[in-house]
Amino acid sequence: MDWAGLAGYGAFFLTMAGIYAVLALGLNVQWGFTGQFNIGIAGFFAVGAYASAIATTAPGGAHLGGFDLPVWVGLAAAMAASAVIAAAVGLLTVTLRADYLAIATIGIAEILRLVLKNEAWLTNGVRGIAGIPRPLAEMAGDHPAAILLVVLAAVAVVYLALERGRRSPWGRVLRAIRDNEPAARAAGKNVLRFRLQAFVLGSAIMGLGGALYAHTVGFISPEAFGPELVTFLVWVMLIAGGSGNNRGAVLGALAIWLVWSGTEILTGRLPPDMVTRAGAVRVLLIGVLVQVILRWRPAGLLPERSPRRDDDA
């Protein structure tokens, strides 16, 4: 038994699950709290990944920058870039009903993907950006525990901040908008401003997830992550965990990432001529799983509870 290899795989598994937990928490702000339907998760994820890569890589690449900045600056830049784009898009789309917003976010993600693919001066086009530094490299070198620690810290910070937000009057307004928009409006709340805030905050968190991914893997390109697959997995995670519930979002990310990684082990045993199609089998299984969840457990593993009941418990 190769214990070091196993520990390394375990660290990578938890790192990826943590990144998806960050993404699911971001979606939870938009869909879980506010009822905004975002199918463009991959777009904001990619913006964050590229923003941090451009900020932190060494100068002289074929893309914009790099500016050789510390990783934490890159993470902040990722959140800022995603937030700016989300604010620009949100100003246009925040008035839309949930199903129209869903269609619009497909367009946003598609346009972002095309920009990243075709604007080579900015992103080096399809060749992507390599040599993205690891966090804490001067202390820990290439040790996989370093990135894991950073990711887990990010999950903890985002989780605690969102829990605080959820229990605050701000979170209450978001839920009011989700459940009964006319009532929220009648109570004098500026519905559009709250919706814009939720959209921007959720997208910034997704950008953070993208940046963490870039620093974990070290290389990004427009096609490196199947855009719809990232979006779909995050949705399945939030629904499986329990939308509206931050703990559910984290648990869902862990559970679905376990299932997703498990299917990789299964399909890895297929005969070689089937391997090229194994990816399709995995997506198919997850697609069926989401139908099962929607049918028999629509509230997820940890259904949403009102903050007041949490406090009594």
Binding site: D99, R277, A280, R282, V283, I286, V290, L294, P298
Partner: peptide, 28 residues
């Protein structure tokens, strides 16, 4: 009987099911 948004999520899932089924049978 649930909300139209649940149906939307479900159809988004079906989109990936159909696409991966096509890819499974005919390759990429």
């Amino acid at each position: 009987r649930t909300s139209p948004m649940i149906l939307l999520i479900s159809s988004f899932g079906m989109a990936l099911v159909l696409r991966s089924a096509v890819q499974l049978v005919w390759g990429p």
